Simulated assay, not measured.
Amino acid sequence: MKISYECGPCFLRQAREALDLSTDDELLKMEVMEDIFKFLSGNFKVDTNSNSTGSTMHAMIKQKTGCYDPYRKEKIEGNRIALKYLPDVRKILDEDDSLESYVKIAIIGNILDFGAFTLDDDIESVIKNSLKKDLVIKDIEEFENALENHDKVLYLVDNTGEIVFDKLLLSKIKEYDLDITVAVKSEPILNDACMAEALDAGLDEYGEIVEIGCGTVGYVDSQISEEFREIFDDHTFVISKGMGNYEGLTEIDLVDKDVFFLLCAKCNTISKHIGVNLHDMLLFKK
């Protein structure tokens, strides 16, 4: 997906956040931000790919600060908080164990920033209220048909914390007797899940975990490894979580694949691209 004018301030917000997590050296922050301004001034254009631009910017921050996992503490905390509430979520699903409920739970995971919650927050109420909301785009019948007619699926995860709720959907998918391959980032980027976080959340209970060969914002086809490209090409059924993977996969030819996107439209650029309202929850087939 290409950038919009609204991506500009978002890039700068991410840069400030990553710099604050990476270093306390104010002069270094100023130096790096100057470099980011120069980079964006030469590359922020109508036809620019959003994921590639963000990935380059974060790589600059890592290289110049020497901090290669700025969000490490936030990722650990995100999984910890999400795992604490897993029993409560399971109780909710015991009351309604439909496929749609599991899909909603996975998307709710995409809504919540677990690192921003404390143990005193009433996350269970947030979950219950979100479950009452309808999916605005709900290709649930096509999704279940894919589950019934494919023998394997590639599941592209998004953030830590969120992957704990993905685990519940993976358990539901397993009931359809599919082989599951879970794809994670090979290198830290933002609070995206890497191998360590996926193992910590127990995703390996439901399938093989593989790395995509890079640490990019979302999916960037030109940077995945040849090993992962073979895996990707070998799967005709793909489940994509989150906005970053949506942005990347819309840039490539998916004609011969059943690709389902599970996400919450959390920014105006994505909302307009899909044709929905901000904060809508979506399950749709490409």
Rank of each mutant, 00 (worst) to 15 (best):
A201Y: 02
G213Q: 04
E77G: 08
F232A: 11
K174L: 15
E100W: 04
V157G: 04
A201I: 02
P70C: 10
G66E: 04
V184P: 03
D233M: 13
L21M: 15
D113F: 02
N49F: 02
K2C: 08
K241T: 12
T118S: 15
H273Q: 14
A198Q: 12
I127Q: 03
I92Q: 04
L21V: 15
D253P: 00
K91T: 15
V184T: 11
G248Y: 07
E26G: 05
I123R: 05
M281W: 00
S186C: 08
G109V: 02
S55G: 05
A15W: 01
D177M: 07
A106C: 04
K138V: 09
G54Q: 01
Y102L: 10
K185Q: 11
I108L: 10
K29D: 05
G218N: 01
L262R: 04
E227L: 09
K132E: 14
D204S: 12
E226V: 14
K38D: 12
N43K: 05
L156W: 07
I173T: 04
C264D: 00
I209S: 02
A15T: 12
F284E: 07
L99P: 01
K185A: 10
K133V: 11
T181G: 06
N129G: 07
E187P: 01
Y219M: 06
D233A: 14
F232G: 13
E251T: 14
T181M: 03
I189T: 05
E141A: 13
A18L: 14
